[in-house]
Design a protein around this nucleic acid. Structure first.
Ligand code: SF4
Ligand code: SF4
Lengths: 138, 138
DNA sequence: GTCTTATAAGACTAATACAGTCCAATAACA
DNA sequence: TGTTATTGGACTGTATTAGTCTTATAAGAC
């Protein structure tokens, strides 16, 4: 399947929603209702977004979250890494992990590395602004 | 992570090994030992390869499998689809499945479709011959 | 000061996919 | 008929995913 998980998708949808509201805050409930996303799950997602510095929380009545960065400044790779870890089309790529029994004799590590880099570049060159405008770069 | 599963990797390694042997057959045991792939698992993989027409079985002593198609003719997309189903970077793409609660109001279906197509194209334009030569196309 | 609104944090669950194993059956050749 | 090797099915343990629930905390409103 080669899927990006739901946290990533819901997270992006929420950030795009926040961007639309400009400087205003939006609560998790408002975003969940407006975007048909399960509220408890979105709450978790926004906590992570906060910890990564994408949004800032505002407590109390009329509170919620507001964006702290511009959509043009956030790329898909960052979001993906936040919620799904590094892109590794093969498990041996990137983080040093030697679990693969075939590694010593593997004939495809090199091309898999190239393939991985291409996917990384594709994600990296796609900003949330691109997504908001229904485009992907390159 | 965005991983391609082990069956795909082991399967490709096995096909490359077969290609190296030209017209000769190679048994699952031989391939498993030569490539450090768990034999029982590779056996399963080769069964699928056979059912998809990538290889032809030869029973009995000195038997095994032989390639039925040229490496230049097999692309990564085919292999991936065989062992992991269609590439769907978001679950709602491709196969008509409406499980996503956000679908009706989703602001990112369109760009996700474009992104998906780019990954499909990347996989499709990479032949096993490309992989054997440690390259990926485009 | 306390009520209310909202975020924060953690534990918890069910469903699915993945990696791998084991076993009994069958095909073909020597 | 024995040997080599593929075939097909069931089966297991682990990890990830998607989602829920509950309790605690921050801060403004009255
Ligand atoms: S099969 Fe090769 S590329 Fe894939 S994980 Fe193992 S060593 Fe890496
Ligand atoms: S969030 Fe949007 S793109 Fe992702 S699965 Fe749901 S409808 Fe499709």
């Amino acid at each position: 399947m080669l899927r990006v998980n739901k946290k990533i998708e819901y997270g992006i949808i929420a950030l795009l929603y926040l961007a639309q509201k400009e400087e205003q805050t939006a609560s998790v409930r408002e975003m969940a209702v407006s975007c048909s996303i399960p509220e408890a799950l979105l709450s978790k997602i926004m906590q992570t977004m906060k910890s990564q510095g994408f949004v800032q929380p505002v407590y109390g009545n009329q509170g919620g979250y507001k964006l702290t960065r511009s959509l043009t400044d956030i790329n898909l790779l960052e979001i993906t890494q936040t919620f799904q870890g590094p892109i590794q089309v093969a498990e041996c790529l990137g983080s040093e992990n030697h679990k693969c029994p075939a590694k010593a004799l593997c004939t495809i590590i090199s091309p898999m590395t190239v393939l991985n880099q291409k996917i990384v570049t594709l994600f990296e060159s796609t900003s949330l602004e691109n997504l908001a405008n229904r485009k992907t770069a390159v």
